[in-house]
Design a protein around this nucleic acid. Structure first.
Lengths: 139, 139
DNA sequence: TATATTTACTTCCGAAACGAAAGTAATAAT
DNA sequence: ATTATTACTTTCGTTTCGGAAGTAAATATA
């Protein structure tokens, strides 16, 4: 079930932004990336105060774009689990570069854990990304 | 002259998005990255149909964030030239990752030049980015 | 030199996107 | 049996956005 997205041009950067260049999509992906499989409530609690209406809309959209998947919780019938597809996992390098840029230029208001992660990235970017992706690839 | 930007959290990703995570900023940076110093009209013509009001606003904002600079044209008094600061040049790796992701997943509607650039990036990412940054660093 | 054009904007306004709050329906816990 | 939780949806006022038109200064043209 693909969503028809209007593309401003045939530029890869603008097209990518047309996909997930909004205020929240990359943060949703970040949440799954760092914490693994998430529920609706997880996102509500952990993201930077996204409203439930917006969250609902973004999750639907990201799913229709094949960036995340939605499945039922194995035992709890009222809970759904959101996870990344390979297409979503392949956004890690983008996220990593955001982290590195912010580490360099927004140093003052970045959390210690984030700085630690940036340090790890600076040490071995490829390795770190590969390692983080591994948990998703083995499914 | 720094602008006070409200940060949703101390996460480097969300903070970066608070800076330039809108629909246009990264495309403005892309334009300078690939074509060099630009005028207001250049952006109007080359970007994906950004309105002049929006363009004006983004340029002012990016300048206040120290990501781009604005200076007068050496001979033409009515023209202003926009260029990247080091902080702006350091966004190249992010842009490069967007290109690579789109090359992989949005293949069908990506221009031949973009594909060629993606190919070059796949061959030697570091080198390519360094090479592209060089023209800005030598100022 | 007078007029037209270009450039870099700003202003205005209707449309779209957004956020906060409240509501709902199903399930689970007490 | 009642309360709480989860995953939403709906509503509505606010913010952001895009398109068109307007402006002022500088430049090009007749």
């Amino acid at each position: 079930m693909k969503k028809n997205i209007s593309h401003r041009s045939d530029c890869p950067i603008s097209s990518a932004l047309d996909f997930f260049g909004d205020k929240w999509s990359l943060l949703i992906i970040r949440d799954i990336m760092f914490f693994g499989e998430r529920t609706f409530k997880n996102f509500s609690d952990e993201s930077e105060g996204i409203s439930s209406s917006r969250l609902s809309e973004r999750l639907t959209r990201l799913e229709s774009l094949d960036i995340i998947t939605k499945k039922r919780h194995p035992t709890n019938k009222k809970v759904y689990l959101y996870n990344l597809t390979q297409k979503g996992v392949d956004l890690f390098p983008i996220i990593a570069e955001y982290v590195l840029w912010s580490d360099k230029y927004l140093d003052t208001h970045i959390s210690p854990q984030s700085k630690a992660f940036a340090k790890q990235l600076k040490g071995s970017k490829e390795e770190t990304i590969k390692y983080m992706a591994k948990q998703f690839n083995k499914k």
